[in-house]
Design a protein around this nucleic acid. Sequence first.
DNA 1: TCGCGCATGTAAGTTGTTACATGATTTA
DNA 2: TAAATCATGTAACAACTTACATGCGCGA
Lengths: 183, 183
Amino acid sequence: MALRYALLAALHEQPATGYDLNQRFRTRLANVWNASHQQIYRELGKLLELEMLRVEEVSQDERPDKRVYEVTDKGISALASWLREFQPRPPTRDPFLVKLFAGDLVDIGCLREEAAIIKAGWVEQLGYFRVIENTYFRDPQRLPRQYRLQHLALRRGILGMESALRWMDELEDGLGDMDTDSA
Amino acid sequence: MALRYALLAALHEQPATGYDLNQRFRTRLANVWNASHQQIYRELGKLLELEMLRVEEVSQDERPDKRVYEVTDKGISALASWLREFQPRPPTRDPFLVKLFAGDLVDIGCLREEAAIIKAGWVEQLGYFRVIENTYFRDPQRLPRQYRLQHLALRRGILGMESALRWMDELEDGLGDMDTDSA
DNA sequence: TCGCGCATGTAAGTTGTTACATGATTTA
DNA sequence: TAAATCATGTAACAACTTACATGCGCGA
């Protein structure tokens, strides 16, 4: 259900196509919400039916036509009332940590390789978040409330990635001491 | 699919009932994997059919009978080969951050209340993780490999919660400056 | 000409949640 | 006597993933 409100919030900030939303989810909103394009198009369809969105068909030369979605008053009020409800925390589910728990079956070499890939992803993500911060949120005190709130959400991503990378250092140290073969 | 291997890993560490597994997921494994009892029982059933688990029925006086599950050789080898495959990262989906993105519709008072509840949960979680660390992992260098790996997984939880709480301080500061009413 | 970016979708399957269901014993 | 803990499940639904499907224009 939260996907619905993530879409409404994103479109309330700025009307967009399904394609645009997919881009945003994978970049600026990477730390907030993730959804595949299939999920996005399906939910956009439902929100249209519910009249929480309206759509404008835009013909383009040299590009496929596109459908730009915008939030209706009904959508705004649905979003507003969702915002007032307490939302349960998302559950934690990390397959890499599951691997660490399988102790005597796991191959430390595999773990090191996987850790390196994960680390590279985190480094990239953190770099990206910092670019956004330096570009749009240089002086957050002076920004209007809306952007200060977005900056706070971004800070969660930055602090989270920094902490993840500090853990990665501990992990590399810890794995470094161990034999490569399992058992 | 990863739930399956989380169960196999947990049962490989120590045979248990569905009920026990539910307890573990909500406590020691809280940082690694979450699953409801319905999911657990369903997956245990499938794993039995696949002969990756065997079950021993234990009659108890003064308590309901219980079914203790244990991993079979087939289960071990399925787990071992899963461990060798790269596992994709879990997606990020945080409804509270979605709220921060809805900037001009959100009521800061609501946000403060929700933040307080979330913070309390994080403080509790961190306290719990630290108790485990102080109880079982006082001198990790001397522990056998299996427990050092588990300690590293726990460290992820501890560093993650510390970082979450540092963010919470930033959030409280940021929200403190804002008016209570929306728009 | 091969792949990538733009742009939108359908269908089938898996995973996860919510609601319902039972029943004994211990603790407040 | 009411609630919590132990102990196990079924059924229905919602959310999410994976595979399939199309088609144009641009750059290497």
